[in-house]
């Protein structure tokens, strides 16, 4: 079998911001390349800073000429508007501000913003419902949203991790990595610490737009430490020494953190409105799924602190529960969808 030309359409952020998405692309690209197919990463700039910029971004992808390829894989909004007869979309998320986050961001919407929302939803539905597009999503949460807002079904395909070498060590601190953004709800964990009457440290890694607010919130509690940006090696070490990873975002699409924590043999505490983590974590078995309230969270943290052996057992169960999440599995499924034979 001769290898085929496949384009992976990547979205390059106009702000040049590097994050989980870049790792996601790198993971997919390297796994695809090792499959023997000829893979091109087609990078197109995206600007979501205002609605006019969003419109132009949609147009840039729509006008992309991909006729030289046998198949196209798209992931991030709005790359799925590209026109190609053999197209697999493995969606990570649509523009959430026009979907599940709309009411939160615009509690009192005005007609113009509603019109924009409706346009984007119609556009996404039209693009994703084309017969040329086979739909996959990165998690149950995204699948649920796609069904609710766009009336479309999609197959869940969990991505692999961008980093290898996770290992389990001692069970000591609470560890919470990630972007410091209000949607990640780090403040909930900080508030929960007020009710944790144990000498356990909360180590927070990462930077973000809400860092100042969070730091202010943590003032006076010496157990809480902000580590800023950490290296991959440090990240692995921090996971290895964790007692538990309290990861409580709002409606998270995927939440690599959950899988990384399990790979490190650590239990995860998440909330019932946290999205994908709440699908991955089995309450009482591989961690806890509790209501998004500081006291509820604190109770679970305290229990795990008092029962480190049980924490270890839960983490070990978690580890085996995510053993099937691998890049080669992802690539095999995507190629099968592109070239069914």
């Amino acid at each position: 079998m001769s290898s085929r030309n496949i384009a992976v359409v990547c979205v390059a952020s106009a702000s040049g911001e590097m994050g989980g998405m870049e790792r996601h692309y790198e993971g997919l690209l390297s796994a695809l390349r090792s499959s023997g197919e000829r893979i091109d990463a087609v990078k197109v700039a995206s600007d979501e800073s205002n609605f006019a910029a969003v419109q132009e971004t949609y147009l840039r992808f729509y006008d992309l000429d991909l006729s030289a390829y046998d198949g196209v894989i798209t992931i991030k909004v709005p790359s799925y508007v590209v026109r190609h007869p053999n197209h697999v979309c493995w969606l990570n998320h649509t523009m959430r501000v026009f979907y599940d986050m709309f009411e939160r961001e615009f509690p009192h919407p005005w007609p113009e913003i509603e019109a924009q929302r409706d346009l984007i939803r119609r556009l996404d539905t039209a693009a994703l419902s084309r017969p040329s597009v086979r739909r996959f999503v990165v998690g149950q949460e995204v699948a649920d949203r796609l069904r609710r807002f766009n009336g479309l079904e999609a197959e869940v395909l969990y991505p692999g991790l961008g980093l290898d070498g996770f290992r389990s060590g001692t069970y000591e601190h609470l560890f919470l990595p990630g972007r410091l953004h209000r949607w990640k709800r780090v403040d909930l964990v900080i508030e929960a610490m007020r009710f944790v009457e144990r000498p356990v440290k909360l180590l927070i890694a990462g930077t973000g737009e809400d860092e100042k607010t969070l730091r202010r919130k943590a003032v006076g509690d010496s157990r809480i430490q902000f580590l800023g940006r950490v290296s991959d090696q440090q990240l692995i070490e921090l996971y290895a020494g964790a007692l538990v990873v309290p990861f409580v975002p709002m409606h998270e699409d995927y939440g690599m953190v959950t899988v990384e924590a399990f790979r490190s043999g650590k239990p995860v505490i998440t909330c019932d409105d946290s999205g994908e983590p709440a699908h991955i974590v089995r309450d009482g078995e591989t961690g806890f799924v509790c209501p998004p309230e500081p006291k509820a969270l604190a109770a679970k943290i305290t229990w795990l602190y008092d029962h480190p052996k049980e924490a270890g057992a839960m983490g070990a169960k978690g580890e085996s529960s995510v053993s099937h999440i691998r890049w080669d599995v992802v690539v095999a499924r995507l190629l099968e969808a592109l070239f069914p034979e």
Binding site: A52, L59, Y62, T125, A126
Partner: peptide, 22 residues
């Protein structure tokens, strides 16, 4: 949830409108 319109055509229609606006 799709209406009776043809999806491909609907996308093209919306995109052309956006093009005009831009």
């Amino acid at each position: 949830a799709m209406g009776d319109s043809v999806p491909d055509l609907e996308l093209d229609e919306i995109m052309e409108k956006i093009r005009a606006e831009v």
